[in-house]
Simulated scan of single mutants.
Amino acid sequence: MENNAESSNKPIHRHHRHHRHHHHRRHRKFWRGFWIVIGVIIVVGLFVCGMIYKNLRDTTQNMYTPVAKTTKSNKGRTLDNLLNEKKPINILLLGTDTGAMGRHWKGRTDTIMMMSINPKTNSTSIVSIPRDSNAIFPDYPQYGVTKINSAYTLGGVSETIKTLDKYYSVPIDGYIMINMGGLKKAIDQVGGIDVTSPLTFNNMGYSFVKGQTYHMNGKKALAFAQLRHGDPRQDYGRQERDRLVIMALLKKSVSPSTLLNSSFLNSISSEMQTDLTMNQMYKIAMDYRKATNNLSQDHAQGVSKETQNPKFGTMEIEVVSREERQRVSDKIRTALELPHVKVAANKASYIMNR
């Protein structure tokens, strides 16, 4: 009986080994097939990511226009170093009132803002400089006292940066210049913006009531920002509305998902110039985006005066006092965690009042 049991158990034992062997073969085939599928997915994913990266790189290269920032305030500062160390940065925002911006086009900057972003305090300050501010340009003194928005006409973004440094003594770490057509497209691409109107007025077929919040597409936002007449604060009122639009757009656009959105970048690439690289924009979106949760705004206040320019004749100009420029300089340098410095005397004001 014992031998029969042993003999009867042997084939059962062999069958069990065969079953396990067959099971392991199927198991190995499954995992081999699984890793082949994963490998294909990774290869396809890398290819797609590579194409996306190439498209984004090509798009940002179309916008990329480096300029010289050789000013006293910029000495020893590079944007890459600041971003790597997550230090506060100051970005110049310029707006032109044109429908399209070609690389050889020269015009005036109707909007001049400095945006100071501090990732440590999670705060962003946007300060407007009046486009009609009095200035004598560092590289073009022969033009005498004229409006600061002509700095771009004569010497491009670089001259604008030099002029701002001359009168406000603050570093400019990068710049973004966009025309109104590009601004409209950017707003549409992010799905519109929410803005509370500081004024009751009608413009371009749209009505706005003071204190009421509106969801605006690009066209409505431009009507809101571009009111030319009817604002009791005149250009200062326009500056405030510009800032409100920019702040609302910042809250929605400064994110990795938006800056890696090829349709968003493609929509504005032909109407925007910047010296920010794709990597720099991505770092700002990753490490500085929380700073847009706490936005504040300000402007340099001037006094309207009439002056005679040897080349342009009689013009109305905004004279910004040395005290006011010092206040603005101190505010920006505080946001950038830099020591205060004394701003230069306003020689333009002296010449006008002689």
Rank of each mutant, 00 (worst) to 15 (best):
M1R: 06
M1E: 01
E6L: 15
H16S: 12
R17V: 13
R25C: 12
H27Y: 10
K29Q: 14
K29E: 08
K29D: 13
R32Y: 13
G33S: 10
L46C: 13
N55H: 08
A68R: 09
T71R: 06
K75R: 14
L79G: 01
K86R: 09
P88H: 04
I91P: 02
L94T: 03
G99F: 00
P119M: 02
T121P: 00
N122I: 04
I126P: 05
S128L: 07
I129L: 14
I136E: 05
P138N: 06
K147P: 05
N149H: 13
A151L: 11
A151M: 10
K162A: 06
S169R: 09
M177W: 01
N179Q: 00
I187D: 03
V190L: 06
T200G: 14
T200D: 11
F201L: 09
N202C: 02
S207E: 12
S207D: 07
F208Y: 11
H215A: 08
K219P: 01
A223L: 09
L227C: 05
R228G: 06
R228F: 09
Y236C: 08
R238I: 10
E240W: 03
D242H: 15
R243S: 08
I246S: 00
A248R: 04
K252V: 02
S253F: 03
S255I: 00
P256I: 05
T258L: 00
S262C: 00
S262R: 03
M272N: 10
Q273A: 12
T274A: 01
K283N: 12
I284W: 03
M286A: 08
D287M: 01
D287C: 02
R289A: 07
T292P: 02
Q297C: 06
D298A: 15
A300R: 11
Q301L: 13
E306Y: 12
T307I: 15
P310A: 02
F312S: 10
M315P: 05
R322N: 10
E323F: 07
R327T: 05
H340L: 06
V341P: 02
V343L: 04
A345R: 04
Y350E: 14
